[in-house]
Amino acid sequence: MELIVALGLIVFKVAFLIAILLLLPLPLTWLERKIAGHIQQRMGPMRVGWHGLLQPVADGIKLLTKEDHIPAEADRFLFKLAPILALAPPFVVFVAIPFGETVSVLGAEITLYVSNMNVALLFVFAVIGIEVYGVIFGGWAANSKYAVLGSLRTCAQMISYEIPMGFAVIGVVMLAQSMSLLEIVRAQADVWNIVYQPVGFFVFFVAGLAEAQRIPFDLAEAEGDLGAGFHTEYSGIRFAFFMVSEYAIMLLVSVLVVILFFGGWNGVLLPLPPILWFVLKVAFFVYVFIWFRFTFPRYRYDQLMAIGWKVLLPLSMANIIITGVLLGATAAP
């Protein structure tokens, strides 16, 4: 009986998480278009629903009913596999992400995470690394030069930026003495990691922008020079898969930034409920992502590589060494 309740709870949590992740791109696309519009002195979508609120629903219906086109020369198996490979990892990663400690519902304490892994951080990086296969397969299988060029760029970019991203996190792990995201947040109860790890945050955030393939690092789908990069040949619901995956990764990077550097659900000054603090911080970083997109131009490819290897990697290395020295110096006596 105990086991069934526990299993049911996990199934419920996972279903809830999937529902949220699948539905969240709807308000996010609306928000992105609205913010884009207002930054460019336009209004954005206005005609479907109040201030265009139902526009993403209309777009979703349009994508669902469009022809699912597969190019004649495409590798059909890989072409169909790629969107799933792109979509699944961001969803899997959220299993390891805690959204809070516990809430009591009807007298029972329910934890706000699906699983508390002791190597959650490693799990996150390992699984998110799989996402690049979706992009590479998608570009390769379409048998189109734009798509191949886009996926080649993505491949190099993702691999280059995963290294500084992983190194940037090591400082946080050293401070918390744990790789469990729950422990990392608990370690920040008094002082957030951003105070101790500003360089780590900078490296992680820039690398996260590149991982999420957002401007200024959206070379994979640079509309101007590549059509749409790896998903040039995709249409209909398969294209929607890539879009959802993109938004899920953007959300994931925001969540990771908040958990690792901005104290997770620990609040300051205002005694808001922890989950609200968490949502507010994540929303802020999602806004920053969108804000960046409509402010900065795209980096050139060699600049992208130079930033990854010549700036971020040495910075993250130096960050580890300095953090280690300072930790050793304070813990010596």
Binding site: H38, I39, M43
Partner: peptide
Amino acid sequence: LALTFGYMFSRSVT
């Protein structure tokens, strides 16, 4: 960033 943030709250010309 400051410039685009300012423009976000400017009147729309639409």
